[in-house]
Design a binder for these strands. Structure first.
Lengths: 257, 257
DNA sequence: TTATTGGTGATTGATTATGATTGAAAATGG
DNA sequence: CCATTTTCAATCATAATCAATCACCAATAA
C-alpha cells in the first residue's frame, strides 16, 4: 500500500460515506492513527474533505461554514439546469410522476405545459403545483419523512400500484455503473414502485451523485430510460453501463444565453 | 456523529422546519442540552439561525404576519377562535384526522401538542405541518380540487378505509337541524369516509354556516360527537337536534384577553 | 559500507469536546 | 405584581483526540 493510494482510498471513503473516524480508518487501512491524521491533514489542505475532532466529513456535509444560503442557491442553480432540460420532455396531455427531491421540485417549478396530470409524493411539489392552473394534480398519500419531504410507505406503494403514468422523474442519492441507490429503505421501496408504474423512467441527478453508492438499490439501468444531469459524462464505466442498457444521457450545459 | 456534522444537521433542521427546541434537538441527536446550546450559539454567530428561549428559529421567518391568502379568508378571526377551542381536545399520542378547509387549517396552525399523528387530505395543512417537529404527518392521497385545496376522490376514500383515527375534524358548508352538507359530491364522499373511520367526529363551522343547506349531505347528527363554533347557539331547532343526538356544542367567545 | 531521505509508529503534554452542576435570567400563570 | 417553572450561561471535571516530537526502518545513492 503506497501513501498516495491510501490517501485516495480515504478520500473516496469519506466521499461515499460522508464521514469517517480516525480510528476506523486506521483499522481499515491497517496503519497507525498518526499516519491517518497526517493523511487527513494533507487531504484537507487539498480541499478533499474536512477534518473534525475524531475524524473527517465530506465537504458538502460541512456546509455550515461557507454561508448556507450561498451554497444553497448555487446548488439550486445546477438543479435548475437539469430541470430545464428534463421539463422539455413533458408534452401536453401526458401523465407525469414527480418523485420528491430538490431537483424534481425544480421540474415542478419550471413546468409550464398545460393539460398535464402530475402525480407526486412530495408535499413541497404539491404545494408548488396548487398554484398552477393548467395542471391536474394528484397527490400520493403516505407518511411524511421530514429528511426528504417525501411521502413514503405502504400507503404510497398501494396507491402507486393503482396508477400508470407516461413518464416518471426520479431523484437518487447514488449513481453508479450498476444502477441507482438511496440511503433509506422506505424511500427505495417507494421509488421502486414508481419505476414499476411508469412507461418512461427518467433519473435526475447532478454530477456529485456519480460514483456514489448509497445503502439501498432502487433499480438497475435496464429499468431506466433517461439520465439527466448537468455535465458531460466523464466516467467511462458508467458510460458503458448506460450504453449497454440503452439509457439516454442528457445534460444541459449553461449554453444558450 | 461529529460536531460539525451535528451542527450541519441542526442548521438544516431549523431551516426546513423553521424552528426547533433545545430538548428536542438533544434527543434527536442523542446529545446533551449543553452541547446543543453551544452549537446553537455558534450557528447563531454564523447567522444560520436565530436563537430563542428554549430553541431556535430560522432566520427568514422572524415575524409571523398572516399569510397573503389568510387576509382574504372570510371570518378569519372567528375561524381562529374556533380552532383555538378545538385544538384543546387533542391530546398527546392521539391520531387526528384533519379535513381540508380554512378552519381546520387554523387547527393545524395552532397545533402545539407533541407526539400526535395527523392525517390530512389538505395540501396546505400538510405543508404547514411539515414545519412542526413533534407531529407525525400522514397525507391522504387523492386528486387535488382547486376550489377547496383538498385531496378527494376514490384514492382518498380507499386510503381512508385502511385507517382508524381517534378524532376527526371536519368542515362543512351547511349546518342544519338534520345534519351537515357540502356542495360537491366528491368532497362529500370523502368526508363521509372520514366520519366512518373516526372514533370521535368533530365538526367545525362558523356561525355563518348555520341554517345553510348545501347540495350534498355528508352525514346526520347521530354520526357527530362535537360541533365547534364561535358563538352561543341561538337556533332552537338546531339546538334540539343536537341535544337529541347527544352532540356537544362548544364555542369560544373572545373572552380571556 | 555509510549517510541520507521519506515514510512510519509510538509517546506525551496540550487541546478540544462533552456532560453535569449551579446560580442567574427569562418566560409562564396566576 | 409575585410565585413558579423553565431555560440559560458559566464553570468544572473528564475523557477523547490531537500536534509535536523522536526513534525506527527501508530504500537509495555516494
Amino acid at each position: 500500500m503506497f501513501a498516495d493510494e491510501r490517501k485516495a482510498q480515504i478520500a473516496t471513503y469519506v466521499q461515499t460515506h460522508k464521514s469517517a473516524t480516525v480510528s476506523m480508518l486506521a483499522q481499515m487501512l491497517a496503519t497507525s492513527e498518526s499516519t491517518i491524521r497526517r493523511d487527513l491533514q494533507e487531504l484537507e489542505e487539498h480541499g478533499q474533505l474536512r477534518r473534525t475532532h475524531g475524524g473527517a466529513i465530506a465537504v458538502e456535509v460541512a456546509s455550515f461554514e461557507p454561508t448556507w444560503q450561498e451554497k444553497h442557491v448555487r446548488h439550486a442553480e445546477e438543479k435548475a439546469r437539469i430541470a430545464r432540460c428534463a421539463v422539455k420532455r413533458i408534452a401536453p396531455g401526458q401523465t407525469v410522476l414527480l418523485d420528491g427531491g430538490t431537483t424534481t421540485y425544480q421540474i415542478a417549478k419550471q413546468l409550464s405545459v398545460d393539460g398535464v396530470t402530475v402525480i407526486t409524493n412530495s408535499v413541497d411539489i404539491a404545494s408548488e403545483l396548487t398554484a398552477k392552473a393548467g395542471v391536474h394534480l394528484v397527490v400520493l398519500g403516505g407518511e411524511f419523512r421530514n429528511t426528504t419531504g417525501a411521502l413514503v410507505g405502504p400507503f404510497t406503494e398501494q396507491m402507486l400500484s393503482g396508477v400508470h403514468v407516461d413518464i416518471a422523474f426520479l431523484g437518487a442519492n447514488g449513481v453508479d455503473p450498476t444502477g441507482i441507490t438511496t440511503p433509506n429503505t422506505l424511500e427505495a421501496a417507494t421509488k421502486r414502485a414508481m419505476v414499476a408504474c411508469a412507461q418512461t423512467v427518467c433519473v435526475v441527478a447532478d454530477r456529485s451523485k456519480f460514483g456514489q453508492v448509497s445503502f439501498v438499490r432502487i433499480c438497475e439501468w435496464k429499468d431506466v430510460d433517461v439520465l439527466y444531469s448537468d455535465a458531460p459524462l466523464d466516467d467511462p464505466e458508467l458510460a458503458g453501463a448506460l450504453q449497454r442498457n440503452d439509457v439516454i444521457y442528457a445534460y444541459d450545459a449553461q449554453d444558450g444565453e
